[in-house]
């Protein structure tokens, strides 16, 4: 396998793109979630919520650019098919992303009278982005077909992804805030956890029922033995997060990081399950990563660059998280 770059390069790029999407979902997940949670805060608390994501959101969204960029450069044909099919939800998501991104800046700099309006735009932009991404996920799972049933399924995944992001946002706030705001974040995290896990279960039941291919991949021996730990571990993690949440907020913030890490773990497992179900297809049941891949010599150039640069990116991202560690109230905006 490794002596033929036309075989392993597409796999390497699918893995790289998958990793980038997963990092995006977790990282932008928490800052979109904080945006969705804006209404739980009093106006004066909103500054603290925004402060907790201020230094990070920009870099978080860059993982989306990298994910789409990798799809574009490594699997250009798939990029064209997927994004032309999802033309409308993509446009909705982009406009929502634009509005929430600029609301960050405008809410602090525009006339004070406009601040509440920009907060509402920030909330709406975050929520619509999450819903649009979830809807696209649903259509993708349904093989990019548009019918009443698939759109209905897309509505379920939309709610599930929005709930998942809310969970990430709420658990992030548990780490980054204290006092009353932290207490409310704990309550929202519990609700979001339940909705996320119900959605997770519904998607796991519906997906194999509509796709015979996925049914075959899941429920045959020995695949089922390899696969069954995924949902089991995910629900065990959810139970652990639930238990820790019941003891939050804890005065000394013991285990305050656990709900966030556990939620990220649930996202990772769900993602692995999806990746397993669709491999080697990049456009479900239509186009494999091998058929869609760019020329090996161009992929090689990118791979070499990525292997050198990505560790550096991880290092300075870590530096940034270390610089801005601690509660958001400690943040000074200068």
């Amino acid at each position: 396998m490794f002596d033929n770059p036309a075989v392993w390069l597409p796999v390497a790029f699918a893995a790289l793109m998958g990793l980038s999407i997963l990092i995006y979902v977790i990282l932008d997940g928490y800052d979109l979630g904080v945006g969705i949670l804006i209404p739980i805060a009093r106006p004066e608390e909103r500054d603290r919520m925004i402060a907790s994501i201020g230094p990070f959101w920009d870099a978080n969204e860059t993982w989306l650019v990298l994910s789409v960029g990798l799809l574009l450069v490594a699997f250009p044909v798939a990029h064209g098919i997927i994004l032309s099919t999802l033309y409308l939800p993509v446009a909705v998501m982009l406009i929502a992303l634009i509005m929430r991104g600029v609301a960050f800046e405008f809410r602090a700099k525009a006339e004070p009278a406009w601040k509440a309006t920009w907060d509402r735009i920030f909330f709406a932009g975050s929520l619509i982005t999450a819903l649009a991404q979830g809807y696209m996920l649903g259509l993708y799972v349904m093989g990019l077909d548009r019918s009443l049933a698939t759109v209905g399924f897309g509505a379920i995944t939309a709610v599930c992804v929005a709930a998942g992001y809310t969970l990430m946002g709420a658990t992030w706030l548990i780490i980054k805030t204290d006092g009353d705001l932290q207490r409310r974040a704990v309550r929202r995290a519990r609700v979001a956890l339940v909705v996320t896990m119900v959605g997770f279960a519904v998607i796991s039941i519906v997906t194999p029922l509509v796709s015979p291919r996925i049914f075959g991949r899941w429920f045959s021996v020995p695949e089922i033995l390899i696969l069954s730990p995924l949902p089991l571990v995910a629900f065990a993690l959810a139970a652990a997060v639930w238990v820790v949440l019941s003891n939050q907020p804890h005065g000394q913030d013991r285990f305050a990081w656990v709900p966030f890490a556990g939620s990220a773990g649930i996202f990772t497992l769900a993602f692995l399950g999806l990746a397993y179900s669709f491999y080697p297809f990049i456009v479900p049941d239509r186009l494999t990563i091998y058929a869609a891949a760019s020329a090996p010599e161009s992929l090689m150039i990118i791979l070499v660059g990525a292997l050198v640069v990505v560790p550096v990116i991880v290092a300075y991202s870590a530096l940034s998280y270390w610089v801005f560690r601690g509660k958001a109230t400690d943040l000074r905006y200068d």
Partner: peptide, 16 residues
């Protein structure tokens, strides 16, 4: 890879 992440991460440090 070389520009977007660099500017986004260090912008956080520069601004905040």
């Amino acid at each position: 890879l070389t520009a977007f992440f660099l500017e986004a991460v260090f912008l956080g440090i520069m601004l905040f």
